[in-house]
């Protein structure tokens, strides 16, 4: 799979937003690829820039956003396309579903109306044939009585059904990449499991790639082939999901996993928390952006930018001086030992 040409490649993506206090960088130099049929999880907390990255790929950032870098879809850079040209990319090449299915559906039109509109947008077909196709799609996403439900309005559906309709609308475009931004966060946990199973089944059937934007490690574990972890607008770690979940390399990823209470967490002990908060894009720290919260930061982390080190022969990457190959393979590794190095970095161990 890794040998196939990527369906989509993001290279050195930067997104700046105009604010009254001057431009701020929401995304700084993000790169990753998505292969055909692959599921990539873009993981991070709020403020990591994961949703902005996804919206940038769709060129759906609002006014006041400046985009730099390349987004290559089928070998074509789409960053320079006009709004009119983008219409042929959106929908067919890739489409996107969002967290809140209620606000993502137009409340004033019936499910059938919105489905038929989308079906006919991408296929020249008669109205009657489009209604047939809409019924098929509702059936495929597991909505009972699909023909009757065509007449339903979004507010008459439950949260889970609305997200199913959103998925049907996405399928109506037959995209090759589906970007799902927190698709189950607004749903109840038992419904979440159903929706994830549905997405996975349809992904296989429609031969879609999936970019899953999420903060939920359980969702990542269930769905992802590869994981890209973001922090404060940068990629801090990426690699195969199994490896990252088993053995995270970046201190942020490690700490993030330890924060999550599990069924076996010791109830009498304090949870491992990451001190402080995600930095505001107005006041990004110098050096490694995670260093003020990092338990193992040392003086080098405070000054220079940290590159994304390739590990395991390029299968994984980590933006940390301390990570595996990066540390062992470098001449200056002596600096890396902790206790001997006094410095401005905070220690919390």
């Amino acid at each position: 799979m890794r040998n196939a040409a990527p369906l989509l490649a993001v290279h050195d993506l930067h997104v700046d937003f105009d604010t009254p206090a001057g431009p701020v960088a929401a995304v700084s130099g993000v790169s990753f690829e998505i292969e055909p049929n692959e599921t990539v999880a873009l993981v991070g907390e709020s403020g990591s820039g994961k949703s902005v990255t996804a919206l940038a790929m769709m060129r759906l950032l609002g006014r006041g956003a400046t985009l730099r870098g390349q987004i290559t879809c089928d070998g074509r850079d789409i960053t320079g396309l006009t709004e009119k040209q983008m219409r042929s990319v959106r929908g067919r090449a890739m489409t996107m579903i969002f967290q809140d299915p209620m606000s993502s559906l137009d409340p004033l039109y019936s499910v059938g109306n919105q489905l038929v509109e989308t079906v006919r947008l991408h296929n020249r077909m008669s109205r009657a044939r489009a209604v047939e196709r809409a019924t098929e799609l509702l059936d495929q996403v597991g909505i009972a009585d699909p023909r009757g439900r065509l007449r339903a309005y979004p507010h008459q559906l439950s949260g889970g059904q609305r997200q199913r309709v959103m998925i049907a609308l996405a399928l109506a475009c037959s995209p090759r990449l589906l970007i799902a931004d927190e698709p189950t966060t607004a749903l109840d946990v038992t419904i979440e499991a159903q929706i994830l199973e549905l997405i996975r089944g349809l992904q296989r059937e429609y031969r879609m790639s999936l970019l899953l934007v999420t903060h939920d490690m359980a969702v990542v574990a269930e769905m992802a082939d590869r994981v890209v972890v973001m922090y404060a607008g940068q990629v801090v770690e990426s690699g195969a999901a199994e490896q990252i979940l088993r053995q995270p390399q970046h201190p942020y990823t490690t700490a993030l996993f330890q924060c999550i209470p599990t069924p076996v967490t010791d109830r009498s002990a304090a949870l491992t928390a990451i001190p402080g908060a995600v930095p505001s894009p107005h006041e990004l720290p110098p050096g490694c952006r995670f260093h003020p919260r990092c338990a193992v930061a040392f003086d080098r982390c405070v000054t220079g930018q940290v590159p994304l080190f390739p590990l395991d022969g390029g299968a994984r990457h980590s933006r940390c001086w301390l990570s595996g190959d990066a540390a062992s393979g470098r001449a200056d590794r002596t600096v890396v030992t902790s206790a001997s190095v006094p410095g401005p970095a905070r220690r919390r161990r």
Binding site: E45, H215, M217, A255, L256, C259, I260, T272, A277, V278
Partner: peptide
């Protein structure tokens, strides 16, 4: 809250 903050 984000998980890191939730733990705090």
């Amino acid at each position: 809250l984000d998980v890191s903050i939730q733990a705090q």
